[in-house]
């Protein structure tokens, strides 16, 4: 079984919002119609986005770390938003595990957004339907695009490579390896939703240096473990 998902590397995310803008650009230009923007150039601009980058500060000054945190639909393996939908507009695809909304069936009751603990579904105030991340389902299988571009637009946009796209059920995929090798974790595990998207934790980049790495055991000046006697400093006698 395939479960497509994103693995987000919090260690390299710089909070540039490229994924947000590229997501908006792609999804507002699609067949499903534009994602609404209300008062875009006015007071209190608001609109529908499938992806948001938030910023958190961990710790107390001066020991603080700034953490940029991209948040989009986690394509849960046990999605709470799907069984509550009264019309069946909200569904999880069997073939690749993507959670989608059928905009033609959605009645706009917002019940799915109540059931989702992550707040990743956004009601489109113009189309009057619930919208959410589609994992760019209209890109990843699109044969009109070059093969390298058949990835979610957020993944393509990310300048630091903080977003890994792949099948998390395939242990050989880059996404699965990143999760297992770098301690990828799900959000709100206590909710029992089993999110497919995982996050890679931040870690301190360090380079441990042991003394034997500084001490050259093959020093040609060293004979039979006897330290070479340092030569007296050479100097030139300018007085003569």
């Amino acid at each position: 079984m395939t479960q497509l998902a994103l693995v987000i590397d919090l260690n390299v995310c710089v909070g540039c919002h490229s994924c947000v803008t590229n997501c908006k650009q792609w999804n507002t230009s699609g067949a499903a119609g534009p994602l609404v923007d209300e008062n875009p150039y006015d007071k209190d601009p608001t609109g529908t986005f499938f992806n948001r980058v938030q910023t958190f500060e961990v710790g107390s000054y001066p020991q603080t770390e700034t953490m940029h945190f991209p948040k989009s639909c986690l394509h849960c393996e046990d999605p709470p938003c799907v069984p509550v939908c009264p019309t069946g507009a909200s569904y999880k695809r069997k073939e690749d595990g993507i959670v989608l909304v059928d905009y033609d069936k959605c009645i706009g009751c917002k019940y799915c957004s109540w059931a989702c603990p992550y707040g990743v579904r956004e009601f489109d105030e113009e189309r009057k339907v619930m919208t959410k991340c589609t994992l760019c389902v209209d890109r990843i299988y699109n044969e009109k695009l070059p093969e390298a571009e058949r990835k979610p637009s957020c993944v393509i946009a990310c300048p630091t490579g903080a977003r890994i796209f792949g099948d998390v059920h395939d242990p050989e995929s880059t996404a699965s390896k990143a999760i297992s090798e770098r301690g990828g974790y799900p959000l709100m595990p206590e909710c029992g939703t089993r999110p497919a998207n995982h996050y890679l934790p931040r870690h301190k980049t360090s380079m441990p240096i042991r003394s034997e790495q500084l001490y050259r055991s093959d020093n040609p000046l060293k004979v039979d473990s006897i330290e070479p006697i340092p030569m007296p400093p050479a100097h030139e006698d300018f007085t003569t």
Binding site: P45, R52, F56, E57, K71
Partner: peptide, 19 residues
Amino acid sequence: GVRHPRIVQRSQGAMGGSF
């Protein structure tokens, strides 16, 4: 997913509010 007692949000990613 960060185990630290003090976490403060600095930005929610949008200035004008959202759904």
